[in-house]
Design a protein around this nucleic acid. Structure first.
Lengths: 194, 194
DNA sequence: CTATTCCTTTAACAAATGATAAATAATAGA
DNA sequence: TCTATTATTTATCATTTGTTAAAGGAATAG
């Protein structure tokens, strides 16, 4: 549970009482590669902190598997829209690399807000950070070419190395064939430089 | 000020004390067409509620004017990243259609959070709603063609009618010429149907 | 270890979008 | 109203990305 608190305290200092209350909403879960931990069609009431492993959210757009985003160890993965709207979700969460999760029951977690204002504040600050992340991603999609987006993603070596390219393509908003072509030209050019 | 409170109470019921505290952070501002109410380079501490008029946020990407988003009357416009990070912003806010704004001093507003938990909750809920909006926009950019994005925007007749197309093009992530071409093919096809 | 399946790349052609320039339309200011 | 400016459309060609098909490589189950 320490890993989760360390993560949380990047956003908000927590008292012992806060931590105890949070701990009561959590459970540990081991997950295997390719496991679907939340399936399409259900409403979500859980967010997951990845102690280890890699996960993605995805959905089917006209039958095609499309990755919404990835989460690496030390981060949170969730079907945020479903949790915030309490509606069924067309999205799913899948494990890409096996690991261990902390599952946070958000029904319980939200109930803590009236008693523990610090926890409400923590949630707000995580939301703020997610908001900033998503704005950056929006800008990347709105104003950068597919090649630029791929090159930017190369910064995140762990992701590129551990996640199948077929998942990365749709995350970048392009087809897998197009990604393969971009990689071919990019890497041959990169070789010329060295 | 009533318009602002009506807007806020879509998210969170407010007491009279809450409203008084909020009112003390607000001021009214009349704005003219094309006026830049927040300029590139400054850090923002203000968000604006549009009683009337239309605004946009934009910035220059390699010298080219790029629209980040639009706000119609009854909504909020802000340089959210700058407010949340307290850093100088490369973005600006411009008035597209003259109107009247309520400017909320966020330095003062944030200070209310410790005393008025309801106001902190209000802010969180607005943030949640913005988060959901931005996710939808992200999906639109990630998985829909420029034509599909334009057609979706047609739903918002007010925006299409009142906002110059040159601003809409970059909002859709395409050039103005490309938008013009899409309009030409789309509207001639639409005519065939009727 | 082998066979099968899945992943990635490559190729060829089609479709969409970008870039530039020029023409037309609309708007704003004198 | 007239003129100058700005906005939008159109045309042409270049570039990027999509689509489909096929081939080669890598991973996995039995």
């Amino acid at each position: 549970m320490e890993a989760l608190f360390n993560y949380f305290e990047q956003f908000q200092k927590l008292s012992t009482a806060d931590k105890q209350a949070i701990a009561a909403t959590c459970s540990i879960k081991k997950v295997k590669k390719n496991e679907i931990i939340e399936a399409v069609g259900s409403a979500s009431t859980t967010i997951y902190f990845l102690k280890s492993g890699i996960a993605r959210t995805f959905y089917y757009k006209e039958g095609i598997d499309v990755t919404e985003y990835f989460a690496l160890a030390g981060n949170i993965v969730a079907r945020a829209q479903s949790i915030l709207t309490r509606k069924a979700s067309a999205k799913a969460i899948q494990i890409i690399e096996a690991g261990e999760l902390i599952a946070i029951n958000m029904t319980k977690f939200f109930q803590l807000f009236d008693t523990f204002p610090t926890i409400e504040r923590l949630f707000r600050r995580i939301l703020e950070a997610s908001y900033l992340d998503i704005i950056e991603r929006l800008e990347s999609l709105q104003f950068h070419s597919a090649k630029e987006r791929y090159v930017a993603l190369l910064e995140d070596m762990e992701l590129i190395q551990k996640v199948p390219l077929k998942y990365i393509a749709s995350y970048l908003g392009i087809t897998q064939v197009s990604l393969s072509r971009i990689r071919a030209t990019y890497h041959s050019n990169a070789m010329l430089k060295s």
